[in-house]
């Protein structure tokens, strides 16, 4: 490997486009929003930069803190469910035949190729009162009743008429939607971590008399911790800032922080306040990433491979 200093030109040529991209489309726009967050709204479209902290002060009022808290809670629930669901999936992929593995990974990634909006509308079609789940259960109940009528137990004597469940427009629907969307973010890092795992540890554990459960919790989970940490971070952060899912699947009490931000930029037409809320979300993200970096460093010290 050559040192970049010995071929400086090649280095700069290859670095220039991404640097330009980062500065022009990330740092500059983000700085503008950051400046907005210290500005005052002085007219319908006028914004004056006067370096005040009023927007942040307002963002820390109980009603907005409450929404922040709710977002954190929803994202945490989503992440927890994702870990529990994704772990068996990742293990199954790791232990499947190599040819099978590629197909299974493809299945995990496949939903990404469909637009999020389309996937969310598809979920609505599944969950709503006349959706696939409710209609499917209704069909089952009706036909079971029809079968029971042969033994004289029909006409809803034993089971129902089916009452559709309220699966849509509530917080459960939002978390369901968030889990559905973010599951691949959890499966992939877990898969990567488990794939690197040295199988001889597992064999040693089993040979030395530990059961499958003990092996799993005492050997597999600790070794997969970096993967779990990555998965948690990249699931939690986007889940906390999700806008579309609570907007479309949520009920009257599913308002999350991104919905407030969107309304500040649109209906309320108050960009400085929207900017302050966005940056509070961003600071929280940086904080989470910093914690992760610290944890990883500790881990790195203990385990140099």
């Amino acid at each position: 490997m050559e040192n970049w200093k010995s071929s400086a030109r090649a280095f700069w040529v290859s670095m220039a486009p991404p640097t330009f991209w980062l500065v022009a489309f990330f740092i500059i726009p983000l700085s503008l929003i950051w400046l907005y967050s210290f500005s005052s709204k002085t007219g319908i479209v006028e914004i004056t930069l006067d370096w005040n902290l009023r927007q942040y002060a307002r963002a820390l009022e109980p009603v907005y803190l409450g929404i922040f808290w709710k977002s954190i809670w929803m994202a945490a629930a989503t992440t927890a469910i994702c870990v529990v669901v994704a772990f068996p999936v990742a293990i199954a992929i790791v232990f499947s035949k190599p040819t099978m593995r590629m197909w299974l990974l493809l299945l995990v990634i496949l939903p990404f190729w469909t637009n999020l909006l389309i996937r969310t509308y598809a979920l609505i079609a599944v969950l709503r009162t006349n959706g696939f789940i409710n209609n499917g259960l209704d069909w089952l109940v009706t036909h079971a009743d029809w079968l029971l009528s042969f033994v004289g137990l029909g006409d809803n004597m034993l089971i129902g008429p089916y009452r559709p469940m309220a699966l849509l427009y509530n917080n459960t629907a939002v978390i369901f939607g968030l889990v559905y969307v973010h599951l691949p973010f959890m499966v992939l890092p877990l898969y990567a971590a488990l794939d690197r795992l040295d199988r001889s540890y597992l064999e040693a554990s089993l040979d030395l008399g530990a059961g499958h459960f003990r092996t799993f919790f005492l050997i597999v989970v600790p070794l997969a911790l970096p993967g779990i940490a990555s998965g948690v971070i990249i699931t939690f952060i986007p889940a906390m800032g999700s806008y579309l899912t609570p907007d479309l699947l949520g009920g009257t009490d599913s308002y999350m922080i991104a919905n407030v931000i969107a309304s500040q930029f649109k209906q309320a037409n108050n960009w400085p306040f929207g900017a302050a809320l966005s940056f509070l979300l961003m600071y929280a993200t940086f904080f989470a990433l910093a914690i992760r970096a610290v944890l990883m460093r500790k881990e790195g010290r203990g385990d140099r491979r």
Partner: peptide, 9 residues
Amino acid sequence: EALCTKINA
């Protein structure tokens, strides 16, 4: 708008 945020929250 502040009232509506309150309603939503």
